[in-house]
Amino acid sequence: MKWPAIGYVRADSLDDLWRIQAEHGAAAQVLAGGQTLLATLAFRLSDPKLLVDITRIAALRGVELQGGVLRIGALTRHAELARDGLVAAHAPLLAEAAPLIAHPAIRNRGTIGGSLAYADPAAELPACVVALGATIVTASAAGGRRIPAAAFFTGLLETALEPGEIIAAVEVPVATQATRSAIREVARRSGDYAMAGLAASLEMDGARVGAARLVFFGVGAGPVLAARAGAALQGRVLDGAAVAAAQASLAQDLDPPADMHGPPEMKRHLARVLVQRVLAGFQPETEAAA
């Protein structure tokens, strides 16, 4: 369907954006890559009066290494995540996740800030930033905030963002030699939202797991940190018994709702399969083959 009648204005700087927001209040809707927002307009699932194009605000762009943190500007497109050298070196989970998002033409427009702000429960990037222990850096006329990713996602399509507040950047602690990360998902067709997915980041202590963050997507109202499964891995060598222990703990970590893909038990099954697939990738080859 055609988009409804709507206004458009471009903000060329953050100050410009605050001025526009002050003038138009709640009628103004920030537009970044538009790959979700513009589709929701076509379906009349959202009804903003004014689109405020923020894609030319330089302060929201760029990927930089700042000490032990990789700062990824909110306007960084999925395709950029997939090919950026700094992302590949310091936040490889995001580089691995990007090609799983939709299709090439969508990845050329969609942004990390937009994906996080929309907070689709089946989206890859919200789960990744929670797994990575990232910080969401926000900006608003009243000043910015720094919100831990785990506290950012507050419910179905809901975040901690206040009206008028936008995501400015994501700060990811850089991966070390001891970091192992991976993302896997199960989807019926390439590019679809996943029926279930798992983003994992482990800190190894030699051959043993120091700490593990297993974050599922597509199995709840938002990214779901499987704290018990992570704890079950702690201090263990990543062998078959460790995988089984993590899988067994999922029963308490997950409470998946039925959705169009299937009943809760199907989601639980997929979650166990995903744990096996992700952890197998971290095992020495002999263990993985066994």
């Binding site: 513009l38 689109l51 033409a105």
Partner: peptide, 25 residues
């Protein structure tokens, strides 16, 4: 609504969904 790909064109050298891009932008 960005699903079928029939509207694929290049903007600044990269392919996009033409139905998910505002001409005004």
């Amino acid at each position: 609504h960005g699903v079928c790909g029939a509207c694929t064109v290049r903007v600044d050298g990269e392919i996009v969904r033409g139905c998910l891009v505002l001409a005004a932008a």
